[in-house]
Lab assay of single mutants.
Amino acid sequence: MTEYKLVVVGAGGVGKSALTIQLIQNHFVDEYDPTIEDSYRKQVVIDGETCLLDILDTAGQEEYSAMRDQYMRTGEGFLCVFAINNTKSFEDIHHYREQIKRVKDSEDVPMVLVGNKCDLPSRTVDTKQAQDLARSYGIPFIETSAKTRQGVDDAFYTLVREIRKHKEKMSKDGKKKKKKSKTKCVIM
């Protein structure tokens, strides 16, 4: 069974824990209790493949930012979460993405942009803004509501699919490099 290491990042209060708990335990946590770091595991079937999701729910508070490099190193894919009623959390996505790329030393890291709290009427981040940002990053965008469960499975499952595509691409690139290195030079 394939294991996928997913990391949920975003500013404090955007609903990272609520999304994760909704996926794992099928219930909505409405009281806000700032996370330092929590880890969850769940076995699911995605596109006919049974897999184990190892999900790291991270601290959004700035005082825990020193811990970010460590979990970013171990993560295979990242859910970059903002709240649709919090423009600052949307603007912060850029910083999370840049930090992930720096730590992973790669421009090509599996990510999904997630606009959470889409059940709320007080939207300050337009869907088109988020779609445009995701398009500019070359990553999928999904709106979710941890409260109603809308888009929750889709967000995590899409990230797994992005990781699969990335692994497939990397193995193809690896095979191309191996083929090239088999060419021999004969000096007579």
Rank of each mutant, 00 (worst) to 15 (best):
residue 2 T to C: 09
residue 2 T to P: 14
residue 2 T to E: 14
residue 2 T to Y: 13
residue 2 T to F: 11
residue 3 E to F: 05
residue 3 E to A: 14
residue 4 Y to R: 12
residue 5 K to Y: 02
residue 6 L to Q: 15
residue 7 V to S: 10
residue 7 V to A: 13
residue 7 V to I: 04
residue 8 V to M: 04
residue 8 V to Y: 01
residue 10 G to H: 02
residue 10 G to T: 08
residue 10 G to I: 04
residue 11 A to E: 14
residue 11 A to L: 11
residue 11 A to V: 11
residue 11 A to C: 13
residue 12 G to C: 09
residue 12 G to A: 14
residue 12 G to W: 15
residue 13 G to I: 06
residue 14 V to G: 12
residue 14 V to N: 12
residue 15 G to A: 08
residue 15 G to C: 02
residue 15 G to R: 03
residue 16 K to N: 05
residue 16 K to A: 01
residue 16 K to R: 01
residue 16 K to Q: 01
residue 17 S to E: 01
residue 17 S to H: 00
residue 17 S to Q: 02
residue 17 S to D: 00
residue 18 A to G: 10
residue 18 A to I: 06
residue 19 L to G: 14
residue 19 L to T: 13
residue 19 L to W: 03
residue 20 T to S: 05
residue 21 I to C: 03
residue 22 Q to N: 06
residue 22 Q to E: 07
residue 23 L to H: 13
residue 23 L to S: 09
residue 23 L to A: 09
residue 25 Q to E: 03
residue 26 N to S: 14
residue 26 N to V: 04
residue 27 H to F: 15
residue 29 V to R: 00
residue 29 V to Y: 15
residue 29 V to L: 04
residue 29 V to A: 02
residue 30 D to C: 06
residue 30 D to M: 07
residue 31 E to M: 03
residue 31 E to R: 01
residue 31 E to V: 03
residue 32 Y to P: 01
residue 32 Y to A: 01
residue 32 Y to G: 00
residue 33 D to P: 00
residue 34 P to N: 00
residue 34 P to E: 01
residue 35 T to Y: 00
residue 35 T to S: 00
residue 35 T to M: 01
residue 35 T to F: 00
residue 36 I to C: 00
residue 36 I to V: 01
residue 36 I to A: 00
residue 37 E to S: 15
residue 37 E to L: 15
residue 37 E to A: 15
residue 38 D to A: 02
residue 38 D to Q: 00
residue 38 D to P: 05
residue 39 S to G: 14
residue 39 S to I: 02
residue 39 S to F: 02
residue 40 Y to N: 00
residue 40 Y to P: 00
residue 41 R to D: 01
residue 42 K to L: 06
residue 42 K to A: 04
residue 43 Q to P: 11
residue 44 V to F: 10
residue 45 V to Q: 15
residue 45 V to Y: 06
residue 45 V to T: 12
residue 46 I to W: 12
residue 46 I to A: 12
residue 46 I to L: 10
residue 46 I to V: 11
residue 46 I to Y: 14
residue 47 D to C: 11
residue 47 D to T: 10
residue 47 D to V: 05
residue 47 D to G: 10
residue 49 E to A: 12
residue 50 T to N: 11
residue 50 T to E: 11
residue 50 T to W: 07
residue 51 C to D: 11
residue 51 C to R: 12
residue 51 C to A: 11
residue 52 L to S: 14
residue 52 L to W: 12
residue 52 L to F: 11
residue 53 L to N: 15
residue 53 L to E: 03
residue 53 L to K: 03
residue 54 D to H: 13
residue 54 D to N: 15
residue 54 D to Y: 11
residue 54 D to E: 14
residue 55 I to F: 14
residue 56 L to A: 03
residue 56 L to T: 15
residue 57 D to H: 01
residue 57 D to L: 00
residue 58 T to D: 00
residue 58 T to Y: 00
residue 59 A to T: 03
residue 59 A to Y: 00
residue 60 G to E: 00
residue 62 E to T: 04
residue 62 E to G: 03
residue 63 E to Q: 04
residue 63 E to S: 02
residue 63 E to Y: 02
residue 63 E to L: 02
residue 63 E to H: 02
residue 64 Y to L: 02
residue 64 Y to S: 01
residue 64 Y to I: 01
residue 66 A to E: 04
residue 66 A to T: 08
residue 67 M to F: 15
residue 67 M to R: 15
residue 68 R to W: 02
residue 68 R to P: 01
residue 68 R to T: 02
residue 70 Q to P: 07
residue 71 Y to A: 14
residue 71 Y to H: 15
residue 72 M to S: 05
residue 72 M to H: 04
residue 72 M to Y: 02
residue 73 R to I: 06
residue 75 G to C: 03
residue 75 G to Q: 04
residue 75 G to M: 02
residue 76 E to S: 07
residue 76 E to T: 13
residue 76 E to A: 07
residue 77 G to V: 12
residue 77 G to D: 05
residue 78 F to E: 02
residue 78 F to S: 02
residue 78 F to G: 03
residue 79 L to A: 09
residue 80 C to E: 02
residue 80 C to I: 08
residue 81 V to Y: 07
residue 83 A to H: 10
residue 84 I to Y: 12
residue 84 I to V: 11
residue 84 I to P: 15
residue 84 I to A: 14
residue 85 N to D: 07
residue 85 N to I: 13
residue 86 N to L: 04
residue 86 N to A: 12
residue 88 K to D: 12
residue 90 F to G: 05
residue 91 E to A: 09
residue 92 D to R: 15
residue 93 I to G: 05
residue 95 H to L: 06
residue 96 Y to T: 11
residue 97 R to L: 15
residue 98 E to A: 05
residue 100 I to C: 07
residue 101 K to V: 14
residue 101 K to M: 10
residue 101 K to R: 12
residue 101 K to T: 12
residue 102 R to C: 14
residue 104 K to G: 13
residue 104 K to A: 13
residue 104 K to Y: 04
residue 105 D to I: 04
residue 105 D to M: 15
residue 105 D to V: 04
residue 106 S to Q: 08
residue 106 S to G: 12
residue 106 S to H: 08
residue 107 E to K: 10
residue 107 E to C: 10
residue 107 E to A: 09
residue 108 D to I: 09
residue 109 V to Y: 03
residue 109 V to E: 03
residue 110 P to C: 04
residue 110 P to H: 03
residue 110 P to E: 02
residue 111 M to T: 03
residue 112 V to Q: 06
residue 112 V to W: 05
residue 112 V to M: 09
residue 113 L to P: 02
residue 113 L to F: 12
residue 115 G to K: 03
residue 115 G to N: 06
residue 115 G to E: 09
residue 115 G to T: 14
residue 115 G to Y: 13
residue 116 N to S: 10
residue 117 K to S: 14
residue 118 C to H: 09
residue 118 C to S: 10
residue 118 C to V: 10
residue 118 C to Q: 08
residue 118 C to A: 11
residue 118 C to Y: 09
residue 118 C to W: 06
residue 119 D to M: 08
residue 119 D to R: 14
residue 120 L to R: 13
residue 120 L to H: 15
residue 120 L to P: 15
residue 120 L to M: 12
residue 122 S to A: 10
residue 122 S to N: 12
residue 122 S to I: 06
residue 123 R to D: 13
residue 123 R to I: 07
residue 123 R to P: 08
residue 123 R to E: 13
residue 125 V to T: 10
residue 125 V to Y: 09
residue 126 D to E: 07
residue 127 T to Y: 05
residue 127 T to D: 10
residue 128 K to H: 07
residue 128 K to C: 06
residue 128 K to E: 08
residue 129 Q to G: 14
residue 129 Q to A: 13
residue 129 Q to F: 14
residue 129 Q to C: 07
residue 130 A to Q: 13
residue 130 A to V: 08
residue 132 D to C: 04
residue 132 D to G: 07
residue 133 L to F: 05
residue 133 L to D: 10
residue 134 A to C: 10
residue 134 A to W: 13
residue 134 A to S: 14
residue 135 R to V: 12
residue 135 R to W: 13
residue 136 S to H: 11
residue 137 Y to D: 15
residue 137 Y to A: 08
residue 137 Y to T: 13
residue 137 Y to E: 12
residue 138 G to Y: 07
residue 139 I to N: 05
residue 139 I to F: 06
residue 139 I to C: 11
residue 141 F to Q: 03
residue 142 I to S: 14
residue 142 I to K: 08
residue 144 T to Y: 01
residue 145 S to L: 03
residue 145 S to K: 05
residue 146 A to F: 00
residue 152 V to H: 09
residue 153 D to Y: 06
residue 153 D to R: 05
residue 154 D to L: 07
residue 154 D to C: 05
residue 155 A to T: 07
residue 156 F to E: 01
residue 156 F to C: 05
residue 156 F to Y: 13
residue 158 T to Q: 07
residue 158 T to D: 03
residue 158 T to K: 09
residue 160 V to N: 06
residue 160 V to K: 13
residue 160 V to E: 08
residue 160 V to P: 02
residue 160 V to I: 06
residue 160 V to Y: 11
residue 162 E to V: 04
residue 162 E to I: 10
residue 163 I to M: 11
residue 164 R to N: 09
residue 164 R to S: 07
residue 165 K to P: 01
residue 165 K to H: 09
residue 165 K to R: 07
residue 165 K to T: 14
residue 166 H to A: 06
residue 166 H to N: 08
residue 166 H to Y: 05
residue 166 H to F: 06
residue 167 K to Y: 05
residue 167 K to W: 12
residue 167 K to E: 05
residue 168 E to S: 07
residue 169 K to H: 13
residue 170 M to R: 08
residue 172 K to A: 09
residue 172 K to I: 04
residue 173 D to C: 15
residue 175 K to T: 15
residue 176 K to N: 12
residue 177 K to E: 06
residue 181 S to Q: 10
residue 182 K to G: 06
residue 182 K to N: 03
residue 182 K to L: 05
residue 182 K to S: 06
residue 185 C to Y: 05
residue 186 V to F: 15
residue 186 V to P: 15
residue 186 V to A: 15
residue 187 I to N: 11
residue 187 I to F: 09
residue 187 I to Y: 10
residue 188 M to I: 04
residue 188 M to Y: 13
